[in-house]
Computed example of a mutant assay.
Amino acid sequence: MTGKCADQVVLDMWHVVGAVEDMVPAKVKLTQLLGEPVALARDGSGNIHAWRPAPGLRHGQRFEPELASSPLPVKLAFGYVWTSLGTPKPDLFPIPEYAEPDRRNVHCATFQVHVSAPRAVENFLDMGHFPFVHTNYLGIEEKPEVKDYTVEISAERDEVLATKCKFFQPMAALSATGGMEVEYIYRVPHPYCAILYKSCPADETRLDVITIFLQPLDEEHVAANLLMSIVDHDSTDTAIKAFQQKIFGQDKPILENQIPKRLPLDPRAEMPVRADKSSISYRRWLTGKGITYGTIPAADATAA
Results as ranks from 00 to 15, higher is better:
Pro189Asp: 04
Phe78Cys: 00
Gly35Ile: 12
Lys89Ala: 15
Arg103Glu: 01
Pro264Phe: 06
Asp7Lys: 14
Pro37Gly: 12
Glu270Gln: 14
Thr177Asp: 12
Leu196Ala: 14
Pro65Cys: 11
Asp7Val: 07
Ile185Gly: 02
Pro118Gln: 11
Arg119Asn: 03
Thr302Lys: 13
Met1Thr: 11
Asp203Gly: 05
Glu152Ser: 11
Asp234Leu: 10
Ala99Gly: 11
Gly294Arg: 02
Leu57Tyr: 09
Tyr186Val: 01
His49Ile: 05
Val231Ser: 10
Pro94Lys: 15
Lys143Gln: 13
Pro144Val: 02
Ala301Thr: 15
Ala239Arg: 14
Leu30Asn: 08
Val231Met: 03
Val146Cys: 03
Arg58Phe: 00
Gln8Gly: 02
Asp158Ala: 11
Ile254Asn: 03
Tyr186Pro: 00
Pro253Trp: 12
Pro37Lys: 15
Leu11Ala: 07
Asp126Gly: 01
Ala275Cys: 02
Tyr192Glu: 11
Tyr293Cys: 01
Gly179Arg: 09
Thr83Ala: 02
Asn225Leu: 09
Ile240Ser: 07
Val182Asn: 11
Leu40Glu: 01
Glu219Phe: 00
Ala19Asp: 08
Gly178Ser: 13
Val231His: 14
Tyr98His: 12
Lys241Arg: 15
Pro96Val: 12
Trp82Ile: 04
Val182His: 07
Gly179Met: 03
Ser175Phe: 00
Glu142Ile: 06
Arg187Gly: 00
Pro71Arg: 15
Glu100Trp: 04
Lys27Gln: 12
Lys4Arg: 13
Pro118Glu: 08
Pro170Ile: 06
Leu214Gln: 12
Cys200Ala: 14
Arg187His: 13
Thr31Gln: 14
Phe124Ile: 03
Asp7Pro: 07
Ala19Arg: 06
Gln215Thr: 12
His59Ser: 02
Asn105Thr: 10
Pro297Leu: 00
Pro90Ala: 09
Thr31Asn: 11
Ala239Leu: 03
Asp203Asn: 15
Asp266Arg: 13
Lys89Ser: 15
Gly79Lys: 09
Ile291Gly: 01
His233Val: 01
Tyr282Met: 05
Thr205Tyr: 10
Glu256Thr: 07
Tyr149Phe: 08
Leu265Asp: 03
His221Gln: 10
Glu181Val: 11
Lys252Leu: 01
Gln258Tyr: 03
Gln61Cys: 06
Leu227Glu: 03
Asp91Phe: 12
Ser279Gln: 07
Leu85Tyr: 04
His190Asp: 05
Tyr192Trp: 10
Ala303Tyr: 07
Lys166Cys: 03
Leu33Arg: 13
Tyr184Pro: 00
Pro25Leu: 05
Leu40Gly: 02
Gly128Leu: 04
Gln258His: 14
Cys108Tyr: 08
Glu156Gly: 05
Ala269Leu: 09
Ala6Lys: 15
Phe93Ala: 07
Thr83Arg: 04
Gly139Cys: 03
Gln244Cys: 10
Cys193Asn: 14
Thr236Tyr: 06
Tyr282Gln: 08
Leu125Glu: 01
Ala303Glu: 13
Leu196Thr: 15
Ala304Lys: 13
Gly79Cys: 04
Val20Met: 07
Ala68Glu: 09
Ser235Cys: 02
Pro65Gln: 08
Met180Asn: 10
Arg283Tyr: 03
Glu220His: 10
